[in-house]
Simulated assay, not measured.
Amino acid sequence: MAKNYSNRLLELRSRKNDINILQESYGYKGYTIDSYKQFIKMASESNDIQNYFIEAMAPVDDIYTKNTYKEADRVKNQLDKIKTSSLNFEYEYQGSVSNNTHIKAHSDIDVLVIIDRYIALEHPLVPSNPYQGNPIDDLMELRLTSEKHLTSAFPQADVDCSGAKAIGLSGGSLRRKVDVVPSNWFNTVDYDRTKLKHYRGIQVLDKYKKERILNTPFYHNFLLDIKDRNTSGNFKRIVRLLKTLKADSDQDISLSSYDIVAIAYNMETSKYYTGDKYILLLKNVYSYLNDLALMPSTARNNIDVPDKSRKIFNEASKYTGLTRLKDEVEELLKSLITSYGLSDYLVEYKAIAV
């Protein structure tokens, strides 16, 4: 069935814009969200399929991202109040907002709350002054103290303490969902050698299993930034597009945001070298996803996420997700070729301003 890209465009614009912030920032005082959508539509010179394609690749406006960080700062300011000489910590960010692949004005943001009592070391590194305390108990203290304080500090908000790895805050006076993630530093051998932050990992507490899970969010973001620079921004354009197609699909696409990033990351860098020939870029993405779908499962299931911490297709449902995402890309590609009146030959030469 043909997709209704006019409806999808409205959904995309609603997702990527906040009328209240637009009114504050740009002076659209008299506009409702519906009239603002119409204003954008009238200002466009091309059709809805083309607009959808172009806008899906674009980053979320910086005014919204700044507001996301402001809401995270409000939570951090409250957490600062529980700092003591014996319970101290620092903050970092992880997730799609931190690497600019988010697709919503109201994106969630993860705040890592990193305890300072100890630093875990990768084997064979040996601490010069071994820690005598219990790291799990320390993180549990941080987690439970944070839960109690945030519940009191944001009485109108929904403070969800049921998550294994994060405390989720939303609603009330908060304009964004903020996830607070108790954790500790994990110094890798590469970090010890270079002192470059992107080689530094973190261990996140699972409060139910009473164990720590290793993550490498800074190395992940570092690798994405390199790929994006090497492709003149086309890598992250495609990540945003694929996430948008998933969000707007009528089918359940069983791929996480992290999975989609990893799939796009593994496309050969040279296939991103299309300059402003974005329909050719989309054609390359479709060919790549089709090749992935047709690949023997033993080979496909051996493909790593960027930091090589796991395989992308580590669950059977992800293959179905891949094929459905491929179908979405194919449908958009065919619709764009028709809307521009192109032949397969002309796809190679069609430039689009983004």
Rank of each mutant, 00 (worst) to 15 (best):
A2Q: 14
D48Y: 08
R240L: 00
L280Q: 07
E268F: 02
V126K: 13
A120C: 10
E268V: 06
S339Q: 11
S339R: 05
Y69M: 04
D62R: 02
E147N: 05
I21C: 06
N184G: 12
P59L: 01
P306A: 05
Y93T: 10
N234L: 03
I226Q: 14
A105L: 07
A58W: 13
S152N: 13
N47Y: 09
I226C: 04
G168S: 15
E348M: 07
E331Q: 08
S317F: 08
L196F: 08
D250C: 06
Y31W: 09
A72M: 14
K318V: 00
I263P: 01
Y93C: 07
N187M: 13
S254D: 05
P59G: 00
S183D: 07
A120F: 06
E24G: 11
F89P: 03
K318Q: 06
S85P: 09
N301E: 12
L332H: 01
T101W: 00
N314K: 05
E147A: 14
V181C: 12
P155C: 13
L139D: 08
E24I: 09
L205K: 03
N88V: 06
I303N: 09
G171K: 15
I109T: 03
K76F: 09
A157C: 10
I103T: 04
N129E: 13
L125C: 07
G172D: 10
Y319L: 08
L9A: 12
S254P: 01
V178S: 09
L174S: 07
Y340S: 04
K66V: 09
P217F: 14
N314R: 06
R324Q: 10
Y272D: 00
K210W: 04
K165H: 12
H106I: 08
